[in-house]
Structures are given as C-alpha cells and as structure tokens.
Design a binder for these strands. Structure first.
Length: 424
RNA sequence: GGAAAGAUGGCAGAGUGGUCGAAUGCGGCGGUCUUGAAAACCGUUGAUCUUCACGGGUCCGGGGGUUCGAAUCCCUCUCUUUCCGCCA
C-alpha cells in the first residue's frame, strides 16, 4: 500500500495517476489526509499527557527515596486525572491508526508512467510478437482431446478424486510435467535465481504481506482448523521470506526462484475458456521473485521479461508480450507484462506468465526495508515477481501446436528432460 | 496426543518494580598501529511515530490487568524448544 506520508506530499499526482487505473481517488485521498492529520493531533495530545505522567512518576520515586511520604501521596493524586485522559486518548489513537490503515489498503498502487491508457484487455499494448505460428491442413485437435487420445491427462479421474479442475497427469503426461519443472528451474538457476522450496500453506500474516488478504480471501483455499491458506502462487511464501526484514544495500539484488503447486478457488469463473487445462484449481508453476533497490527495479523487470522470453523461445512456442493497460492491471502492480502463447486448436492466445514490478507497494505491507548507506535511513525496497513459467497452458499449447500424424513432438530443449521426443 | 521449559537488540545472553532502550560478548561500521593484512587497542552501532529544530512518545512474543511507576508481578492467547507416544 501507499504510505500516508507519500499521499500527503503528492496529493494531486496520486489522484492523477490513479485515473489511469480508472480509480477515482479524490474522495478517499481527502479522507486519508484528514485522518492522518487527526491521527497526528491525537498522538501529540497523548504524547504530552504521557510526558507529564512519566515525569510525575519519576518525582514520586525520588520523594519516596528521600522519605517524603506525604508529598509523594499528594503527587499520586495528580496522576489520576492524567491516567483517565491518557486511557481515553490511547483508545482514540488506536482507532485513528486503524481507520487510517483501513483507508490506505483501499487505494491501489500507482501505475508507472509507461502504462498504456485503456480499460479492457483489448487495449493492452502488444510490444512484441514472435515465433512461427502453427499451420495445419486439417482442423487442429484441442488439447483436452489429445490428452485423452494419448492417455496423458485424465480429467475424469481428477473429478473422481477431488473435483473439477484437478486433473491427473499420467505416464508421459506426468513425465512432461516433471520435465518442464526441471527445465524452468535449471534455466532460472542459470540466470542467477537461488532456488527455495517454501511451504505451500501459509498463515494470515503472509497472506496480508503480499496483498491476498483481506481483499482476495475468497480466492484462496483455507484450512479452517489450523487457520492456514493454500498458496495461490509461490510469490506469497517466497516474498514473505523478507517480511519484517531490514537489508543492507550490499545484499541487493535478491533473486529467488521456486517451484510450487498453486491452488486457486477461481470462484465465479465459468464458460468455455475454463475447459481442459485452461483454468485449474491446482497447477504447477515456477516463480521468480526479486527484491531490489528502488533505483534498479525497472532494470530488473526488463531482465525478468528477457528471461521469460528466453524460455518461450527455447520451447519454440509462438508468443507475444503485452504491456497491460491501466484498466487490466492488478491492484498492487505498478507495471505488468503479460506473456501469451498461441494455441493452435483453440485459435487464441493463452496467458502463461505475468511479470510485475510492485515498487514499494508490497514492501510497505511487508515492512521490507533497507538501510541507505549514505543517509543512514531505512527506506522501502522494491519487490518484483513473475511466472517462469506456469505449466498448464504451456502444456496445452505444446500439445495443440506440436500435434502431428505420428504424435506430439517435444521441443528439442525439453528432450533431455523428458527422455523422449514424441508422445504417441 | 501427553509432559516440561521458554519467548529480551543482527546473533548470543544478563536483568533487584523506580535513574533500563536495556549490562556483557560476538558481529557490523569508523579510527590508531602496519608497506598491506591479521592481531591488539580506541570509538561507534536497534526500530518506529511526531517536530523546521530542540525535544517528546512507543516498542523486551501478542492482548489485558495490578501500580504513582512494569522487561521485572498477575491473567490470557500465540508461537518455539525438549522429552514421551505415533509416524513419512
């Protein structure tokens, strides 16, 4: 979230920038400023009161030590009123802080200046399209039929075990999953990302840190007995590694990668675009996460984009890169690039990665800071993350685009991981 | 699941209800010495809110209470560790 201080100092700028996200901020910004001023006012009153109490308490201590019991008892009476007042003030202060917090979490992150204006997915800016589009002399078969034909993914079996959106990968299908995970992890490692294997259940503090809570509570699976959440992305546990941490400037850049299954309730999604692998409740993903000095975060973002692009290139999939417009961006992001691969049978682009710079928006919630060596002051770091990559739609696209009369061809880069070059 | 112990600054670890934001050690930073380094020695070193500043407030796991005054006493919650049981 944004800090009250930043809003105080950049009121007009904040309002203007948020319009790019179609967020009318004028009213809430005014409230934030009022609330912040009120908070300060209460705090000042409380401070003065406590100062008085402290000094009287010290006096009493001295009086007792010097044996002036009567005077001490007299002084005690003075504190009664002060105590009463401070109790009242501190209740007000706690409420004032909470009310301010409640306002701040409602304000989205400011979009970067390069974010295109626009409201819908059609207005995202395609900055690159690359790779050869698949050509078929016959009607290409959709991946859910291919999966059945070669018996590599069993959707019905998943229904039996769990429910819709939990497929069972079998034989070469399972091997393909494992191959992709290893391929993505190896590539990330080569690019300097240190692998971590985090828990896939997290507590509420972690959920709040990266912004899933409180707003997106309904999107996560919740284990009520232990009050833990199944992660919707590795971003949550990996970024939260750095919650409540003060870094040294020298520790930048922090680069982590992690493979985890991801769980999403996807409440409210329906229709033909959820068929097959297009939208699952459980899927596998390799995530890259970075913590950066504010001055370097956009360079880091470009590096991440290059990395993801390299993966798609090696997988020989036709892809395009979109810079999301204000209306399509997430609440917490300052700049997001989406990667889509073309899928031959569905004849549409499928999102396989989303790479974002959150600037200090997550850091402020996470209390992730660093000590500036020159000013000796702590300031918020920048966080970034991106999928590199999410598996299901990659698999969908591989199956559909690489189908031949003989079987499904495996791209060269993947063959040493699969151990086979065709699924038949 | 049963039993016990514990939670203090980056880490380790003291702490009598009053002068404790907190000893000490390690680590970090700066310096002296040195051709350089190490060692030794000296100094310095928490976070946060508020204020132009001086200053002031808050924080010893979270919350509540007792008291003029709480790291220290009481209640409660959470978490951690150890032992036993079960077990990948």
């Amino acid at each position: 979230m944004l800090t009250a201080k930043f809003i105080q100092e950049n009121k007009e700028f904040v309002i203007e920038r948020l319009l790019v996200k179609f967020f009318k901020a004028e009213e809430i910004i005014t409230k934030v400023i009022e609330q912040d001023n009120y908070r300060k006012e209460i705090q000042t009153k409380l401070d003065v009161n406590l100062t008085q109490q402290n000094s009287i308490a010290k006096e009493i201590g001295l009086l007792f030590q010097t044996g002036k019991i009567d005077e001490a008892n007299k002084a005690k009476e003075k504190t009664a009123i002060l105590k009463e007042e401070s109790k009242e003030l501190s209740v007000q202060f706690t409420k004032a802080e909470k009310d301010l917090q409640d306002l701040l979490v409602q304000i989205p992150n400011l979009p970067h200046e390069s974010v295109p204006h626009g409201k819908t997915t059609e207005e995202n800016l395609c900055i690159k399209e690359n790779g050869t589009m698949p050509v078929f002399t016959y009607e290409a078969i959709p991946h859910w039929e291919l999966a059945k034909k070669y018996d590599i993914i069993d959707f019905e079996l998943g229904n039996k075990l769990t429910g819709a959106g939990f497929p069972v990968y079998k034989g070469k299908g399972a091997k393909l999953q494992r191959a992709l995970i290893n391929f993505f992890l190896d590539e990330a490692e080569q690019a300097g990302y240190a692998e971590v294997q985090p828990p896939i259940l997290v507590n509420a503090d972690s959920g709040f840190g990266t912004g899933q809570l409180p707003d997106k509570e309904g999107q996560m699976y919740h284990c009520g007995i232990d009050n833990l959440y199944l992660i919707p992305t590795a971003e949550v546990p990996v970024t939260n590694i750095y919650r409540d941490v003060i870094l040294n400037t020298s520790t930048f850049s922090i680069k982590n990668c992690a493979y985890t299954p991801c769980f999403r309730r996807e409440a409210g999604s329906y229709g033909s675009d959820v068929r097959g692998l297009n939208r699952l409740h459980q899927f596998d993903k390799v995530e890259i996460v970075r913590v950066e000095h504010p001055a370097n975060s956009y360079t880091a973002l470009e590096e991440m984009v290059k990395h993801v692009e390299g993966l798609l290139h090696k997988l020989e999939l036709p892809y395009r890169i979109l810079r999301l417009c204000g209306g399509d961006m997430s609440f917490t992001s300052a700049l997001t690039y989406d990667f889509e691969v073309f899928s031959a049978a569905q004849k549409r682009w499928l999102e396989v990665s989303s790479v974002s710079n959150f600037e200090s928006y997550q850091s402020n919630r996470l209390k992730l800071r660093f000590k500036d060596e020159k000013t000796k002051k702590t300031q918020l770091a920048h966080t970034l993350n991106g999928s590199a990559l999410a598996l299901p739609r990659i698999v969908a696209s591989l199956l559909e685009n690489n189908q031949t009369a003989e079987g499904i061809k495996i791209p060269k880069a993947l063959q040493k991981y699969t151990g086979f070059d065709i699924i038949k």
